[in-house]
Design a protein around this nucleic acid. Structure first.
Lengths: 254, 254
DNA sequence: CTTGACTTTGCACGTTTATGCACGTTTTAT
DNA sequence: ATAAAACGTGCATAAACGTGCAAAGTCAAG
């Protein structure tokens, strides 16, 4: 295998999985870890990824504002993204929320999926612009920079004009009693509005969100039908939601 | 085997396998590696493939997001972007079109500029999400993937609700008689609509756009007040526009 | 048919690049 | 506090590289 080809492969794996583990990759490619480490160092020098102990993480300048958060649980987020992407049936109309997890869902849509994705996240729109068959509807409004999503009156008005089959919601807190929560008042209102216009709502949550609560409540937990979480979590974390009749889907982290 | 025939074969193998390994190919064809290397060098000089250590890789698609498209000719477009960015006054409300040139404008806004940018391009929105002070208004609609901008009825409705001081328009053709043109009918309609809701329209055009015409006419050239072009162009290219009373701003390429 | 200009190819040479290993250091986990 | 894993650096080797050159081949004008 050519060196440049290998580097391209590394970037592809990074995009797909949200992380690189040097040892794993060296075994996969049948090369010494030194070589992989060298590649990672060079790619990092070009600013194409971020080097960390044990491997590498994305450096995506387009999502630089996220970069701090992106490091939280990249493998898990990518796995959740894949699991959510698999839930979308051909012909469906779905709403994709903003945030890093939603971007992972967009990245992992099957490349032959014919469906419509509605989103108020320009990041999601940019990713899906490269998808060959998915129809994208962009919801406008005032840009809330912290989360990179549209919010405000115009956003509400636009959301009122669509009805979707499934809403894939990102949150910062999932709590059996407090409900679904997030860190911005206006964002919470938008999520609530989308929820009302969706036949079904699916919440994407990596483990640090479970049992946590943020300042602004979006809706009670019973509003949602499915919770997608990473695999291998202790039972006591997910049991409360099962007991409330919520389907808990676990995403394997390959 | 004829040289040209061999080169055609190389390109075919490259398309089929996604890569060329010089040694393998030389054995396959019963020629010395030197000959193959020479071919690869020449094909690379023609831009038909990308030369790498050990062989070659495809020229465009695999590499497009690898080394980055905008690295190709960073000079002119970036210079035009900087020049346009300098034209924005504090407190103004401007509309930024889609396209790579508009993204350059967004990247080059002074980091302390307090202004409002309206755009139907998610790419521009993502870039401006990192800007500390600029207010961003995102116009929604159906996503036209080729240009990565929102189009359609919803886009029209949203545009009708804003009035901006300056519209920075990207085009694919600027011609003194034909006018401003672009390659998509719906995009042309959107640009025309924005034009009507702007006090002033500025067109950003790198040299290859001047004197060129695309299928769909946006507006007559007299609709615009300023044309931003790169520096160092021959007079005969810009003189026709000056004669029509259009201010031609040249962007130094430092 | 011959001549001379030009092209193509393979080889020799010295240079650059890629890779794996050894060694000592730093980071992480226990 | 300690052990294991990951790290960076220097080094040796082999592969791949470019260049200059000469032999073989091609072609058109004479």
């Amino acid at each position: 295998m050519l060196t440049q080809q290998r580097k391209a492969h590394i970037l592809e794996v990074l995009r797909r999985d949200g992380r690189i583990i040097a040892k794993t990759l060296s075994q996969e490619l049948g090369l010494s870890e030194d070589t992989i480490r060298r590649d990672l160092r060079e790619l990092a020098a070009e600013g194409l990824l971020q080097r960390v102990h044990g491997g590498a993480l994305p450096a995506s300048p387009a999502l630089a504002d996220f970069s701090g958060r992106q490091g939280v649980a990249p493998g898990a987020k990518a796995a959740i993204g894949r699991a959510a992407a698999r839930m979308i049936q051909p012909g469906q109309v779905v709403f994709l929320d903003g945030g890093t997890t939603a971007v992972q869902v967009a990245r992992n849509l099957a490349s032959d999926l014919k469906a419509t994705v509605v989103t108020h996240s320009p990041s999601v729109a940019v990713v899906l612009a490269e998808h060959p068959t998915v129809e994208v509807v962009l919801i406008g409004g005032r840009l809330f920079k912290h989360s990179v999503v549209a919010v405000g009156a115009a956003t509400f008005a636009a959301i009122a004009q669509v009805r979707v089959d499934t809403f894939f919601m990102g949150v910062t807190g999932v709590h059996a009693e407090v409900g679904l929560t997030t860190g911005d008042w206006e964002e919470a209102a938008v999520k609530r509005a989308v929820c009302r216009h969706a036949a079904e709502t699916v919440v994407l949550a990596s483990h640090e969100k479970l049992g946590a609560a943020s300042p602004y409540v979006i809706a009670p937990i019973t509003e949602i039908s499915t919770l997608v979480v990473e695999d291998g979590l202790p039972d006591y974390l997910i049991e409360p939601y099962r007991r409330l009749g919520i389907a808990v889907q676990t995403a394997r982290d390959p």
